[in-house]
């Protein structure tokens, strides 16, 4: 339903704005161009998306998610103290973060959901715990090794070095995850009772 509102809003603004500024003929022409641009974008991403889904699946089955999660476990145990007493939670959490890093968004979600379900406080069901907020922040900061879709779009637009943004993407993701965690920690201290 959200998307319906976004769609209506965008079209409404386009029509109202263009009838004031007299650009309605451009807007009419843009409908045909935009629809075709959608297909062009999909086709330009297709190869890359297939390749990296394949590589992601390979890395998962080759045990790379497993070894990565072993490395990350000490860090994650600090961020999520609940993992010390709950081995299953520890597994789900590290698998979720690792799948995200390797770009397996679809595989990451079920494990993240399992982790959040295990974090539910039986005394206070329906209320988000501090650890849940931290997990959400880590997931929305999108720490990802190879942002393949973006690279594919760049390459389709004639960019000869589509992966040159990687260091900038990594630094940015780590900063947003770090600041998000710090904010969650601070808000958690302030928001003790509710």
């Amino acid at each position: 339903m959200v998307m319906s509102w976004i769609w209506i809003l965008i079209i409404l603004i386009s029509v109202v704005f263009s009838s004031i500024t007299g650009t309605i003929s451009n807007v009419a022409a843009a409908t045909a161009q935009g629809a075709q641009a959608g297909i062009t974008l999909a086709v330009s991403m297709a190869g890359s998306l297939c390749l990296w889904s394949g590589v992601g699946h390979l890395m998962d089955k080759a045990g790379m998610t497993g070894s990565l999660s072993k490395w990350l476990r000490p860090v994650l145990n600090r961020i999520f103290p609940g993992t010390k007493t709950d081995a299953q939670l520890s597994n789900d959490l590290s698998a979720n973060i690792c799948a995200n890093i390797l770009g397996l968004g679809n595989a990451a979600t079920p494990m993240g959901i399992r982790a959040v379900k295990r974090m539910v406080d039986p005394n206070r069901p329906g209320i988000a715990t501090d650890e849940m907020c931290r997990l959400i922040v880590l997931n929305t900061a999108s720490i990802q090794l190879i942002p393949a879709n973006v690279a594919a779009v760049r390459s389709s637009l004639g960019c000869s070095t589509p992966f040159d943004i990687l260091p900038a993407v990594w630094v940015t993701s780590i900063c947003s995850a770090g600041l998000g965690l710090a904010a969650a920690w601070l808000f958690g201290k302030l928001w003790r009772h509710d």
Binding site: W7, I10, I11, I13, S14, V15, F17, S18, T21, T23, I24, N26, V27, A29, A30, T31, Q33, G34, A35, A37, G38, I39, L41, A42
Partner: peptide, 15 residues
């Protein structure tokens, strides 16, 4: 992608 690019390009064309 088809629906959204149509909307976004309309919005761009309108200024």
């Amino acid at each position: 992608l088809v629906l959204l690019l149509t909307a976004v390009m309309m919005l761009r064309a309108s200024g």
